[in-house]
Amino acid sequence: MSKNPVVPYAIIAILGIALVIILSYVGVNQREAIQNPEENADAAEETHDPEEIYQSSCAACHGGDLTGPPDLTAIGSKYSAEEIQDIINNGRGAMPPGQATPPQAEILADWLVENYK
């Protein structure tokens, strides 16, 4: 009885087809994450710690110690929390809008008013 040379090739072909199907299935499930990276990043990075929000969204321009420019160390005596939130959300002067999400802007504004008067 001689060996059939087609059998090893058939096994390799079946394994290859199964691998393609598995990888396709995994890829289809990741399509949403690939198409919407900003949404997924925002959801994963959403924090409620005002200092973390400040460091990730504001410190590059305003400095790690809030000394600016512009200086934020007394911002709570100049603006209300609602005004600060509006500035964060909509921008003003050199401040571009949308540097933080609206919920983060609210957290930041409350923190700035409470701690930097």
Rank of each mutant, 00 (worst) to 15 (best):
G93N: 01
I75N: 11
E82A: 03
L66F: 08
I22F: 02
I12Y: 04
Y9P: 04
T47N: 07
G91S: 00
P37E: 13
R31S: 12
Y54F: 05
A100H: 04
A94D: 13
E32F: 12
L72A: 10
D86H: 10
E83A: 07
T101N: 07
E39G: 12
E46Y: 08
V7L: 07
S57V: 03
G16Y: 04
E52W: 06
I17M: 14
A44N: 10
E46A: 09
D42V: 05
L15K: 02
E83V: 01
E82I: 04
T101R: 04
V20L: 14
A100S: 12
R31W: 11
P69E: 11
L108D: 01
A33G: 15
A13F: 05
I11C: 09
I53Y: 02
V7W: 03
P102Y: 14
A74T: 15
H62C: 12
T67S: 15
E38R: 14
R31M: 13
Q85P: 00
C58M: 10
D86V: 06
D42W: 02
D42A: 12
G98M: 08
L66E: 05
V113M: 00
Q55E: 11
A94L: 15
T73G: 10
I107Y: 01
S57F: 01
I75E: 08
P8S: 00
G76E: 01
I11L: 09
S80H: 00
P103G: 05
L72G: 05
G16P: 09
L23A: 06
I21N: 08
Q99N: 08
N40L: 08
V113I: 11
P102T: 13
G68R: 10
G16T: 11
A81V: 00
H62V: 06
G27V: 01
E82T: 09
S56L: 09
I87V: 11
E46D: 08
A44M: 08
E39L: 06
Q55F: 04
D86W: 08
E38M: 13
P8Y: 09
G93M: 09
G91T: 03
K78H: 05
G91W: 14
V20N: 11
Y9W: 14
L72E: 09
H48W: 04
N40R: 13
Q85I: 02
L19N: 02
Y25S: 08
A33T: 13
H48Q: 06
I87N: 03
I53F: 01
I107L: 05
A105R: 00
A44F: 11
A41S: 12
D71F: 01
E83R: 00
P37H: 02
D110P: 02
A44I: 09
G27S: 13
P69D: 06
G98I: 13
Q104L: 07
E39R: 06
L19V: 07
A59L: 09
N40Y: 15
N36S: 12
A43M: 12
V20H: 06
V113Q: 00
P37C: 02
N89C: 14
K78P: 12
N29F: 11
Q55L: 09
I17L: 13
D86R: 07
E83Q: 02
K78A: 15
A74D: 15
P97E: 06
G98Q: 10
G27L: 05
A100E: 01
I11T: 05
S56K: 15
I14R: 05
D65I: 14
I34D: 14
A43K: 15
P8C: 03
N36H: 14
L108P: 03
M95Y: 05
L15F: 12
T101M: 05
C58A: 07
E46Q: 11
I107W: 00
